[in-house]
């Protein structure tokens, strides 16, 4: 076992708010440059660029986890990280079922592009992906867990789109695998992780978390969040 650096919150050009430079290949090369061992691609309410990024990561020797940053009906953002391609496909269906199909104008919100490994555009999503789903935060967590995924409320110390801004506090009954913070708050009842929430290449790895793992994989990450079998969170970047 050794320490591995992971940044589990990165947006690609599928997210309307991300820079057009955030193509999967650029994400991988910047992650490599920053010395990251593992990343998760977490676009708003969609996993459609994950497989391409996984494939490019494999070639470059970077572990890529399949994820999405989900907007619940309360407008709380949470990271959902899926164990494998099948679970991701199941979650993608769930996301599409709960979409409210909010109208989208790329001139205002930005382009939402699905690409292949050669950066050809294979689809442009025509509804606003970041809009709230018609599923409650509890339902998002339940959907993640039913597919064996991890459920991590995002940037909980931010004043917008966070569990604390929208709901005031973390409901006691809500089962979370960890919470993501942006600032220095680490003294919490839950495992705490930090990630970049990168929307442009130079932000990749600006915040990350170091984990003690056997290898950089979903299974090992899940063990580390639970503090099992010697796996654990070593540190979060200040």
């Amino acid at each position: 076992m050794r320490p591995y650096r992971a940044d589990l919150h990165i947006h690609s050009i599928l997210s309307p708010c991300a820079a057009l430079e955030m193509a999967p290949a650029a994400i991988i090369s910047n992650a490599k440059k920053r010395g990251l061992d593992m990343i998760a691609l977490s676009d708003h309410n969609s996993t459609l660029n994950c497989e391409v990024t996984v494939a490019l990561g494999r070639e470059a020797g970077i572990s890529v986890l399949r994820a999405a940053e989900v907007t619940s009906a309360e407008e709380v953002h949470s990271l959902v990280i899926l164990p494998d391609e099948n679970a991701m496909l199941g979650f993608q269906k769930w996301l599409e079922r709960h979409s409210t199909h909010a109208p989208h104008d790329p001139e205002i919100f930005g382009y939402q592009l699905v690409v292949d490994v050669h950066e050809n555009i294979v689809a442009e999503i025509d509804h606003f992906l970041t809009a709230a789903l018609d599923a409650s935060l509890e339902e998002v967590g339940a959907a993640a867990h039913s597919l064996g995924g991890l459920f991590i409320p995002a940037h909980i110390d931010r004043q917008s789109f966070s569990i604390t801004s929208q709901l005031g506090f973390i409901p006691e009954e809500l089962f979370v695998d960890a919470v993501e913070v942006v600032g220095g708050m680490t003294d919490l009842l839950y495992p705490v992780v930090r990630n970049s929430d990168a929307h442009m290449p130079e932000h990749i790895g600006r915040r990350f978390t170091t984990y003690m793992l056997e290898n950089p994989s979903f299974e090992e990450l899940a063990l580390a969040l639970r503090g099992e079998k010697g796996r654990h969170i070593i540190s979060v970047t200040p």
Partner: peptide, 23 residues
């Protein structure tokens, strides 16, 4: 925004919201 209500609503107020969460 529940965080806003938590910090600013006065006792005895009637709160109008779209949020339906148990919080």
């Amino acid at each position: 925004l529940l965080s806003d209500v938590m910090g600013h609503a006065d006792a005895g107020s009637v709160w109008v919201t779209l949020q339906t969460h148990r919080n």
